[in-house]
Design a protein around this nucleic acid. Sequence first.
DNA 1: AATGAATGAGCCTTCATTCAT
DNA 2: AATGAATGAAGGCTCATTCAT
Lengths: 198, 198, 198, 198
Amino acid sequence: MPKIGMEPLRRRALIDATIAAIGERGSLDVTMSDIAGRAGVSSALAHHYFGGKGELLQATMRKLLADLGADAVKTLRKAPTSRARLAAVIAVNFSAGQFREEIVHAWLAFYVEAQKSQELRRLLRVYARRLHSNLMSGLLPLVPRAEAERMAEAIAAMIDGLYIRRALRDGLPNPASAAALVEDYVEAKLRKMRAAND
Amino acid sequence: MPKIGMEPLRRRALIDATIAAIGERGSLDVTMSDIAGRAGVSSALAHHYFGGKGELLQATMRKLLADLGADAVKTLRKAPTSRARLAAVIAVNFSAGQFREEIVHAWLAFYVEAQKSQELRRLLRVYARRLHSNLMSGLLPLVPRAEAERMAEAIAAMIDGLYIRRALRDGLPNPASAAALVEDYVEAKLRKMRAAND
Amino acid sequence: MPKIGMEPLRRRALIDATIAAIGERGSLDVTMSDIAGRAGVSSALAHHYFGGKGELLQATMRKLLADLGADAVKTLRKAPTSRARLAAVIAVNFSAGQFREEIVHAWLAFYVEAQKSQELRRLLRVYARRLHSNLMSGLLPLVPRAEAERMAEAIAAMIDGLYIRRALRDGLPNPASAAALVEDYVEAKLRKMRAAND
Amino acid sequence: MPKIGMEPLRRRALIDATIAAIGERGSLDVTMSDIAGRAGVSSALAHHYFGGKGELLQATMRKLLADLGADAVKTLRKAPTSRARLAAVIAVNFSAGQFREEIVHAWLAFYVEAQKSQELRRLLRVYARRLHSNLMSGLLPLVPRAEAERMAEAIAAMIDGLYIRRALRDGLPNPASAAALVEDYVEAKLRKMRAAND
DNA sequence: AATGAATGAGCCTTCATTCAT
DNA sequence: AATGAATGAAGGCTCATTCAT
């Protein structure tokens, strides 16, 4: 009997396998066979569902983006104030679901691949813009626009930088201390603002 | 024309070609033939002088590291105070010689490759440690040790993050604004310290 | 035409092609492409099924060994006496199926390669031990153990030596005369034994 | 000052290096660079003196042949009787100078290479013919011509076979026992002859 | 829905060989 | 007499991709 409705299951399995493979290998040069093997299917099926390696990688990147987005929405919903919203945006990036080895490796690998693939670059820009706007929504009520822009840029850079460092060291910066570092920056800046206003 | 003493010239040419190739491609998956071609020699010669692709990449990374180190030493020499030293360390990373597209791409690519290559990881650790100690030497006279550690980590993360962002966008953040962002963080932190001391 | 169950066919075809190629070339330095071409497939397929050149060569050697073993078993089954068994063991090595140019060349080539490859050396030892035990089973009822050991060694050496000579000359020693030579040695020794017993 | 008369020294050194390399590697696939390195010269010089790898191998084979021939002549000179001459011919092949690992390996490797190289095959035939005639000169006074032919062939085969076995096992058979094995064959045959004559 | 079979293209690497000095 | 420099040619191997079933 022909199995029906397998497609979405297979797609998900393949994407998860892709993340796992990238996470383990530390880079994108994983083979379609490896990925398919992890998902328990033939590599031909991966092609059947995604068309090619490039598309599978894109789909994977989109999944990463979507998960991060979903996490963000969920966390932001519970944030009552601007300051809390800002904290939430930062926290999400270092949450247990995101700041994991395989995810971190995948992000880093995608950053590099984005140099070659226009589509991946586009996706990464979407993420960057969303992060920026999330940060701005938390910052604008607290500081002048110019300052907010600067801070958003700095926060984003710190997050990316901490991801790299997480990938490089074998385990270190733990999520909590990483987030604390960013928060420390925010606090320093806000305190300065308040001081200026006095 | 003398046909002797070519080795150092070829080595340099090949390493430069490697950086150029990586810079243009945006990642390490450049072929030996491409690199050799850019250097005006056969791929066999590249193997002859370096032994293999892995070693050539390592040599290239070492060159990057050495150049950055030399730049740092040169700049630090002119820094009279702790604060100036701190500024110098930051500035070097965004100097005209370092914060260039091909260099930035190469760094990023090496970060990823370091997941796979132990030797590259080792080299990257050397760089990280050196940056850390340079930052600490500027920070320790200004703030307590614990605070200095935190700031060094944050500054390093921001630098790495700004490199990533430089690689991703096509041109943006210019060196000056990137360095300013880090300096802004430093200022905010130092001011806070001073305030705490009053 | 069904496209399934090709594997065993391809494996056999590739191994046969390997023997043919070695036989024609006279040594193991045949290319995978040549072998694959003879088998009517791409060299990639050969890699797919065997993993690499080394493994294909091993599989080929194993095939040679297996064929010789099967021949031996078949012939030994019909041997009623010890003396007949002894004759059978010798005869098998010079039978039409074994003492052919390509087979002889392959054996010789493998002997040399065995210096480099541990696995091949292991396989060759298996063959040597089997030959020895087959010879001993025919000899022990006829002569004292020490003498049997000596004869087994001598017979084995003569067989190997005749293989070499077969490979070297272009056609000469025909199977019959080669076998006769070994038999002549056996007869001389046995007669001497009997004489000693009188 | 230009060194004069280096040529014969270099040639000898290169040939010795070739034997050493083949002996160690166990086969002819040694590189010119390896050989030249062992001889303490550049690979270019090896080409200069020999023209190419093929010629160097041939020269090496010729050296092996010449040494064996010289050994034979020296030993034969001291042999007073036919029987002693026969024993001498056999003994030479298992003498300390010949039955050494590197020499044995070299012989074996050359046997295989002879399939491909006409010149090597020619050289090997020269050796075979010489061995045959040496054996015949010892045998003809003792046994009828037909029998002598048969014995010469058998002895030659045993010698070759023992060489192979020496190469394969790691050390065994020792020279003495190897020679004894051949002598044992000779004795058995001669005794039989004498018995027939009684 | 799924896969075994099969391949073309490409890359790294090795090595004998040449040549100018 | 000797070598460093340099390369062309070739081989093993990998991998994404296609196709028939």
